[in-house]
Amino acid sequence: MASIDLEKMLAKIKNSQWALADIDWEAPGAELITEEQWPKLKAFMSDLMWIEHVGARGFAALAKVAPDDTLREIYTYFHAEEQRHANAEMALMRRWGMLEGDEIPEPNINLRLVIEWLDKYSDDMPLETLGSVIPMLEIALDGALCKFLLDTVKDPVCHQAFEKINDDESRHLGVGFTVLEMQGHGELYKLAIKAAGTLMRPTLILGILSYLPLLNKMRDNIVEMGLPEESLYKVMKKFETIGGRTAEGRRNPWYQIISRHGRVMIDRTNYFYHVPVDAMVKASSYIPKRMLPPIPTWVKELTWNPVA
């Protein structure tokens, strides 16, 4: 078992805190963003920042269902740290002239649907479901998106910020995979029956229906921006390798479901999956915004300002 000592990890997390004020957001380097790069980067940063923010809400839900105080406190920190990443990414956007005043990037309709679902139902999701999805999102974020950003952006302040963000993410991944393995303990048939029961929950089905189109849309967005598809294959492989490195990890039915889904999701030739999901993306674009409920107040906590 490759799990980590969560008590030690919590102490490490507490000792590794940083603030936006640690970074000089006015330092030279913003001019290194080219005019050609700017519009694509704006769209990319907006997606990235929303993934961080949605991930933050996921950690908040995990804190509710954590089985003990240590894990609860770790998830409470991770919730805040993902928020910090979103705040830092907004600070970068502002530095690059992508945000005016107190403006925050506009979430697309698929994000709005996921935000709505998270707000209403995520707190009731079992630990093994969210606890297994989040490492997959984290690894995609860390291994593909952030790497792509640092390969294409020369601004040293961006590199400085992402050095700190990546340090945080490595701890999130460490805990994420440990929890994923923890959820593989017990008899396989019991785990499978429990997973099947959860999959039949209407609230989870609603979540899947909002999550799949978001993934497809984001995948296409970032590939269009120049992210090589190869890097997506690599991160999915990495998820399978790390998640499946122990018998417990492999026995977690959610690991099996998510890793298989990851393979399908990045394979554009799988029409059986992509045609209906793309149709859902298209259908969701017709949902009038006025039909959506107001944005939850947790979204309004976002800020690019290092000082309040």
Binding site: K14, Q17, A80
Partner: peptide, 21 residues
């Protein structure tokens, strides 16, 4: 409700990265 990371000269820095003065 963000965890307090540290107190600083002008206020409190929380884990969400913001310094509250």
């Amino acid at each position: 409700t963000w965890p307090i990371a540290t107190l600083c000269e002008k206020g409190i820095r929380c884990a969400e990265g913001i310094e509250h003065q």
